[in-house]
Design a protein around this nucleic acid. Structure first.
Length: 776
DNA sequence: TTAGGGTTAG
């Protein structure tokens, strides 16, 4: 179009042409229209007006306002005289287009020049530039300069400073600037509310909002949008509803951003009814609204519906963005739906979103959760590896795929790469230490946590209690437990220490801790009940266990769950009260699961009750057909009473069921279940040293027998560790494990000598090279 | 000519 350069007859004279150009240039620079500015630029060029400094300057700022950096900077560089306005415009452009370093360079140049000095318009731009580049020290320097040259009381300068300090996480500095302001505008309040929220101080954010309302500052849309996420995080639906009311009064509901923020708040607070009401009221949903909806489904635990939203939004013509893809990938992960996950990956690649850092992280996480560790790791290797969450994703992927040792190695690499670990890192990597149960490594980690000051965090202390417990070091576990002040101890850490003592056979201590917990006012939950009942059953505290069970029923009006019943069945069974256990299993108000029947079966093996054992085994096979352990138990029961043929039948049953790929002799597989169990317990670090004298030669024999199995499970490492390590101090021998161990050896021995494995057990004491330990 | 804002990764 030639509207811009159409020159009427009366404009023929050169002077009026210049005036017209000037006018048009002003108009088009104000409209920020790049195409118009370019046309005008061409026109000025043909008229030979570009030699005029004024035109050059105007064109430069016009290009800057259209964010056309290359033309703007070219013209600006060639200006003989640069006005303050053109400096500011250039700097603002650079900040706006995400090149703050160019803005700061210009600022430095400006300070060096004698012709011009920064004004109150310059400083907010420069401060934002420092903030965007995280150049906090420089920002503080600029703040100092504003004080010196007297711009510190300018509201715009102060508001930029608030934002800068909040971005740098310097809440106190921001608060100080805020308090010293003569006049806080709504922008100042909003910056503080939002800043506190982003700095993990949602409570302060909501208080700030309330203060703003008390002071009588008129809130705007930004105020509402700033406080609503805090309401969501705090699940403060009361404040959320107040804000909603205000939104209605002020007519802010027309604002899409406000509506989306409200929707998100209701979802996060779990007020689905209000959320759906709002969703239904939104006629045209933008991509944020759709994404919030997806997250809403995820919050209510409905990942399947979250995935269905994707085609729905596409039908409405809304294209998912990287946030949408991230949320959808998280849904795929929780459903372990590799098919959908791969589709989304393909979609992300097609739309150039796959290298967006959030998408990358979610992809790594999704593949890990779908048991595609290789893909997950490959993707991780492709990333820039600069951000903590990417490392966290791959770390938790390693743990999910059972690679504890690798996770710890990766964590060390992460530190070597100067990547700062955060809460999530420790939540991801610490379980690896519990799996590995290496006391030395655990202590190293403990030191590191103390150094970083993470130990005071309750969840970190809780997992450290678990780690030390798994390493067999109850003393250290208790020390860590004691670090947390009594008033701050929560149910998790209490359950941790109770279960630690329980696992190590210190039933009395577990019960005593349980009582202390109740006295301290912490209400026990299902997990605590399970831990303490488990402790009783393992320590043979029948009466204590039964009275605790009654306590659960009476004092806490809690409905015992199936795990609690299983503990009691186990407790009665271990004590030889098999009939009581059986009658409980038949009369309990909840359907007994595989664990309950398994507990009964285990007890029947110990007490050699075939009749009941067969009943229990039938149920266990029915409910948990893939667990070879149950078959092993039944075989062992038959073997114990000398019914070899029946034991063999069990072996054949295992073959028929087609459980896993069996090695040379099916029975080896059956019995290696014990060995797997043993490895698990070894890696869990419990009850090991009682065997060390005996089991090393045996393990070596096992290694000859099925080397690939052992290598896979890193048994060799374990052998080395246990041979050389003497830090293990366990004083409990678990009968059950001893039984397992006896069985393994009885299988190995005949195989080793090339003897046919049938009948596999002639006489326990003949076959077993282990001295029988008396239980204690 | 200036400041502040929503949904997201582990």
């Amino acid at each position: 179009m030639n509207r811009a350069i159409k020159v009427s007859n009366k404009d023929k004279s050169f002077g009026s042409l210049v005036a017209k150009c000037e006018l048009l240039l002003r108009r088009y620079s104000a409209s920020h229209s790049l195409s118009e500015t370019k046309k005008l630029h061409a026109f000025i060029l043909t008229l030979g007006l570009l030699s005029s400094s004024d035109f050059c300057s105007m064109l430069s700022t016009s290009y800057a306002q259209c964010s056309h950096a290359s033309y703007a900077s070219h013209l600006f560089d060639n200006l003989p005289r640069r006005s303050l306005f053109s400096w500011n415009t250039m700097m603002r452009m650079y900040v706006q287009i995400g090149r703050p370093h160019n803005a700061l360079n210009l600022f430095a140049e400006m300070l060096d020049s004698d012709h011009v000095a920064p004004d109150n318009f310059t400083y907010p731009i420069v401060i934002k530039g420092c903030s965007d580049l995280s150049l906090f020290d420089m920002g503080v320097g600029v703040h100092g300069r504003t004080l010196r040259v007297g711009f510190d009381s300018d509201t715009f300068v102060q508001n930029s400073l608030l934002a800068m300090y909040m971005n740098a996480g310097e809440k106190e500095a921001a608060q100080l600037v805020f308090d010293l302001m003569q006049q806080q505008t709504v922008v100042s309040w909003n910056t503080m509310i939002n800043g506190y929220f982003r700095n993990n101080c949602a409570e302060l954010a909501s208080r700030m909002y309330n203060r703003m309302m008390d002071v009588g500052v008129e809130p705007d849309c930004a105020s509402v949008v700033s406080v609503l996420p805090a309401c969501g995080l705090l699940k403060n639906v009361k404040l959320g509803k107040e804000v909603h009311l205000l939104v209605k009064e002020k007519g802010f509901l027309e604002n899409m951003t406000v509506r989306n923020a409200l929707l998100d708040m209701y979802f996060k607070c779990g007020h689905m009814k209000e959320a759906w009401k709002l969703v239904n009221g939104i006629k045209e949903k933008d991509v944020v609204a759709w994404t919030t909806l997806i997250n809403g489904y995820m919050i209510s635990g409905d990942a399947r519906s979250a995935l269905v939203v994707c085609p729905m939004m596409q039908c409405e013509g809304v294209k998912p963005n990287s946030v949408t893809i991230t949320s959808l990938l998280s849904a795929c992960g929780s459903l372990a739906s590799l098919k959908h996950g791969k589709c989304l990956h393909a979609w992300a690649i097609k739309h150039w979103l796959d290298s967006e850092v959030h998408v990358e992280t979610s992809l790594i996480d999704m593949y890990a959760k779908c048991a595609c560790g290789n893909l997950s790791y490959k993707l991780f290797m492709k990333t820039s590896k600069k951000r903590t969450p990417v490392w966290n994703a791959v770390l938790s992927g390693f743990i999910q795929n059972g690679l504890a040792r690798e996770a710890i190695e990766l964590f060390k690499q992460m530190l070597a790469n100067d990547i700062q670990p955060d809460n999530v890192t420790f939540n991801s990597v610490l379980p690896a230490y519990a799996i590995l149960a290496d006391l030395q490594q655990a202590m190293n980690m403990h030191c590191y946590l103390v150094k970083l000051g993470f130990l005071s965090r309750l969840e970190v202390a809780s997992i450290l209690v678990d780690i030390y417990s798994k390493c067999g070091s109850l003393g250290y576990a208790h020390q860590v437990f004691n670090i947390i002040p009594m008033t701050e101890k929560d149910i998790i850490i209490w359950s941790g220490i109770i279960s630690a003592y329980g696992k190590h056979g210190h039933g009395e201590m577990a019960v005593s801790l349980f009582n202390q917990m109740v006295q301290s006012g912490v209400k026990p939950n299902q997990v605590t009940f399970t831990s303490v009942l488990h402790a009783c059953s393992h320590a043979g505290l029948v009466d204590e266990g039964l009275s605790l069970f009654k306590f659960i029923l009476k004092q806490h009006h809690a409905i015992p769950n199936v795990d609690h019943y299983t503990c009691i069945i186990d407790l009665l069974g271990r004590a030889g009260r098999l009939n009581d256990a059986y009658s409980l299993i038949r009369t309990m108000p909840i359907t007994p699961n595989h664990a309950a029947w398994g507990a009964l079966l285990g007890a029947c093996v110990v007490h050699e009750n075939v009749e009941l054992g067969e009943v229990a085994a039938r149920w266990a096979f029915e409910l948990e057909p893939e667990n070879t352990g149950n078959y092993v138990l039944l075989a062992k029961l038959y073997a114990a009473v000398g019914r070899w043929r029946d034991a063999e039948k069990v072996r054949d049953m295992v073959n028929e069921v087609g459980l896993r790929k069996l090695p040379a002799h099916s029975l080896v597989e059956v019995w290696t279940t014990f060995e797997q169990n043993l490895i698990w317990r070894l890696s869990a670090g419990t009850q090991v040293n009682m065997w060390t004298d005996h089991w090393i030669p045996a393990v070596q024999r096992l290694a000859d027998l099925i080397p690939e199995f052992l290598i896979e499970n890193r048994m060799e490492d374990k052998v080395v560790e246990y041979v050389s390590g003497s830090s293990w101090n366990f004083n409990l021998l678990d009968n059950f494990l001893e039984e397992d161990w006896v069985s393994i050896l009885t299988v190995i021995k005949p195989l080793e000598s090339g003897v046919e494995l049938v009948p596999f057990l002639r006489n326990k004491s003949d076959e077993c090279p282990l001295p029988r330990h008396s239980s204690n």
